[in-house]
Write a protein that binds this DNA or RNA. Sequence first.
RNA 1: GGGCCUGUAGCUCAGCUGGUUAGAGCGCACCCCUGAUAAGGGUGAGGUCACAGGUUCGAAUCCUGUCAGGCCCA
Length: 979
Amino acid sequence: MSDTAQAAQDDRAKKYKKTLNLPKTAFPMKANLVQNEPASQKRWKKASLYLAAQEARPEANRFVFHDGPPYANGNIHLGHLLNKCLKDFVVRTKLMEGRRCPFIPGWDCHGLPIEHRVMQELSESGKLEKIASLDDDNRRMAVRRECQKYASKHVKQHVTQMERLLTLADYDHPYLTMQPAYEGAVLEVFAGLVEKGLVYRQLKAVHWSVDNETALADAELEYYDREDISVYVDFVAQDGEAVYRAFGLDPEDDDTPAQSPCFMIWTTTPWTLPANLAICVNEKFTYALVRVDGNITVLAEALVEKVTKAGKSESVEVLATTTGDKLLNLRYRHAFIPEGPDFSTQPDAAMRGADPSGIYRVLAADYVTLEDGTGLVHTAPGHGADDYMTGLKNKLPIYCPVTENGTYDTSVPEFLQGMKVWDANEEITELLRTDGALFYDHRFMHSYPHDWRGKTPVIFRATEQWFIEVDNKDLSLRDKAFEATDPTNSDSVKFVPEWGRNRMRGMLETRPDWCISRQRAWGLPIPAFYTPEGETLLNEQTVKAIATRFREVGSDAWFTEDAPTLLQHWTNPDNVDLTSLKKGMDIFDVWFESGSSWNAVMRERSEGADYPVDLYLEGSDQHRGWFQLSMLPALGVTGRPPFKTLLTHGFCVDKEGKKMSKSVGNTLEVDMLIEKFGADVCRWWVASVNYENDIKTDLAFFETSGESYRKIRNTIRFMLSNLSDFTASSPGCDDGMCVAPESMPPASLEAWVLSAFDEMSKKVRTAYETYQFNKATTLLYNFCNDTLSATYLGAVKDRLYCDAPDSERRRRTQTALWDLTDGLARLLAPIMPHTADEAFRTLRNVDAKDPAHCVHLSTFIDTMGAKAHDAWPAVIKVRDTWLRALEDVRAKGDIENPLDAGLVVPDPEGLLSGFDAADLADLCSVSRFRVDPGASAVVVEELSGEPRCERSWKRDGTVSQRADGGMLSDRDAQAVGVV
RNA sequence: GGGCCUGUAGCUCAGCUGGUUAGAGCGCACCCCUGAUAAGGGUGAGGUCACAGGUUCGAAUCCUGUCAGGCCCA
């Protein structure tokens, strides 16, 4: 071609390009989420989206979802991100299905972590001393005021962070466990349990600060080294012959010694020996009957050498061995309390369910080890955690002869009465030495728990606590819980995933009675009063009266008001002298508060209509936590579980599958992720994970999600960019440029793509319905990439760009694009609320500030309405073979550009009759497509010898020189209006 | 130590009640397009299904054990 001819052709190319309908849109390729999401938030807030979205759906069609309260502390972390996004997917998918789905967010505000933190801050600021000098009520109030401030501050911070995740909830009316109405409702649950007889008082061994005369939680302990006495003590068997028989020796035999054998125990707290009620062995261990310097005693075989060496024994002879189980129930005599303690002075709570005749026996315990001691463990149920459990199991009294101030009461031998336990260590050791019961003693340093405030050593001491009975004979909560979760029961609780059922039932099996009392300031008081005679006043009526009072003025009243004022709503039928009553100082376990949320939130706000709740959704740690501790009180009060379905998710771990922790340094900060990727990308990540198991987390995964997001965004952008000259019809009218999908030819590309959308949409909605969000993301992603980007959008580019703007074919395509964009925006709305709304609004040309039109007020589309040709799936499938043939030719280098090629395909089954050759050509991006009934294989025609349309670059066989001198196909000539 | 759960290509995951050459996506390599362009499309390589036993005609799939990891207990 000559230079002048080339120049003329270039001119025409420029001229023709101007006649094309090229893509144009205000929807930017770059999302700029970090900057633009807050604008969406502001717009939604202005439009009161939460309320508007609820009101847009019928009241009658509700899905009831209940938020478990996170602890009002610190920044939100990855666990919150996961949990809150999953919950938001539920809320938003239900709304998009046209159901009303109220979501009231909540916070757990009471409890030790906050109180602990506040005490630290008070200590650092020097205010603690001043507070310590106040009386009980005022001191507690001072602490409570600080705690309340702290909790409120963190709730506000959480709300800001959670809203930034673009979650939709009633953040203007959250529930807080410290709100007066909530507190009242918790007490009403408690009253219900009291009425059913499920609440009782019993002793329980807890850490006790002798110095401050208060119980301590684990978090209030600090470990320091301390010197103590370690003693090895022989307790003489009551029936020596039985012991010999247990070791397989015949007492009648002359070789069998005549003297009584002993059981040797070891302890580092000799002061607990007066409270000894049992000796524990491990059933599986081997025990030896040993003659040590003439004395005969029982020791774990593995420890004989170690112990006798320590005691510097001169002669050691093992007479026989046996296993621990043979020793069970053998009796012994206490080293210095031969008749046993005088239990008559002990409180009823110590003797509840106990059988005092069973003391001084050998019992089994699997916590007995061979690391220290003798393999026989001194057991004092009133003075040790393990000992306490063993005591309960074996019906021993929870005997605690030590008073609040760390001195012995009158139930012990006279020489100890009134003595401080720390002094008793020496006294008891000396007594044992004198009596010959002491095998060996020595002083040693060890790490020992101390009161974090006074830095003084603490003791284990049984104190009166409140319990909820799980194993009551007539109406056992455990039985009810098993029934409610029984898989064979048709209205049983549903578990997602199903294995949660086993896990929860396993945990129910072993759960002991629930100790609900704590000795702290920051919590809901247990409304118990005590008469001067030491009687407890707490019944259904008094608890309800206090509940009413708390609803009026909040639980601070317990510390600021006297008994008559607090009980003003009580009828006092027996004329109790209210002025003489003393208030109890126990507060509830925070789990009891959050475990009552089904009443305080769901029943309260719906007047009972929302009970039981459709769904609880939390981490799998809540099988033992909130799930179980909500179910037990609910079963007790209402007889049914508070939820119909329990959904659990796993925990975020690092990319190696290891637990994330600040000290290891493998954590990711949510604020940073939001700043770096934006909420929509983070939400896409959450939606795409398999949350049933551990969730591996790494910055790289968020980057991958960002890539997926961009792919989807670009697909939407391309569709929007081809709608710049298109006006959709208003709903129900044909005032726009739409071509009714019902009228689209079944063999058209549009009928196919719209029905493909319907199929995908149905699957996505099912996935949403079953909480399989990762399945939904896969379906949506693949639809955008395969169906749209790689197939449909590639095929229709030519007609969008080159057809006359208002040709029927182009308008039909644009109708499909509009519907697809609209439908996709709605399906994506639950996962990426900002981007979906951006697309939805761009599609409708809504001004950025105009709050009208919001995808979140719309619903999913049931069907696009197009009817596709039955052969379409087969055509799409056989297209792969055509493309492969094309690729083979291209790989050989014969043809580079597919537009230089034509396809001739066989069609033995007549699949393609009724299909448009131009459509099929576009579907393969080739210039020409022909069916040859006689062909045996796909043939690729090389067309580069034929004239090429200067406008559409196609060689479709109709290209010829036109009046303006350009080479144009018929279609393009018509589009530009030349002949 | 106990209960529940997990371990499949370099990475994230599908693989239903056991049945032909184990599937996606990402990443990677190569190629095309340059009228979606800090975009778009195509092709390809990659796995003794944690390890060791067992049941079976046949196991990624069922059973037992070991190792590694998670949650909850002790």
